[in-house]
């Protein structure tokens, strides 16, 4: 459960687009279009593209998370294993 309307379809689409199976991408795209319409597919693809850029810039030059975000996100990060990402070392020193 994501608590977000059509959340599972959006998560499946995002995962598929970053994955290696073309058939899975096509299936996830069709499912998202059926659930939310064609414009939502475009918007979800734009978002996946933008964050593919953001993540590479952030990981590539080693930017840390802003201090104001670190404390409020501590429980969340620990729960989902985010503190174990290699790039966590840029923020947790």
């Amino acid at each position: 459960m994501t608590g977000v309307e059509h959340g599972q379809a959006l998560l499946a689409f995002a995962s598929a687009v970053l994955g290696s199976d073309r058939a899975v991408v096509a299936s996830a795209r069709d499912a998202l279009a059926a659930a939310m319409g064609p414009a939502a597919v475009t918007s979800a693809a734009l978002t996946a593209g933008v964050f593919s850029l953001v993540d590479r810039a952030a990981n590539g030059v080693g930017i840390p998370v802003e201090p104001m975000v670190m404390k409020p996100s501590a429980d969340f990060r620990a729960r989902y294993g985010i503190d174990e990402y290699p790039s966590a070392r840029n923020s947790i020193r």
Binding site: T2, V4, E5, H6, G7, L10, L11, F13, A14, S15, L18, M36, G37, P38, A39, A40, T42, S43, A44, L46, T47, A48, V50, F51, S52, V54, D55, R56, A58, N59, I63, P64, V65, Y80, I82, D83, Y85, P86, S87, A88, N90, S91
Partner: peptide
């Protein structure tokens, strides 16, 4: 900012992408 999706839906896609890219930021 985008057609056909709400802010939470945008952030959900963004979060999944960043998790797959193991981006702490």
């Amino acid at each position: 900012s985008l057609e056909g999706v709400s802010r939470p839906q945008i952030e959900l896609v963004a979060a999944r992408v960043s998790a797959l890219n193991q981006c702490f930021y």
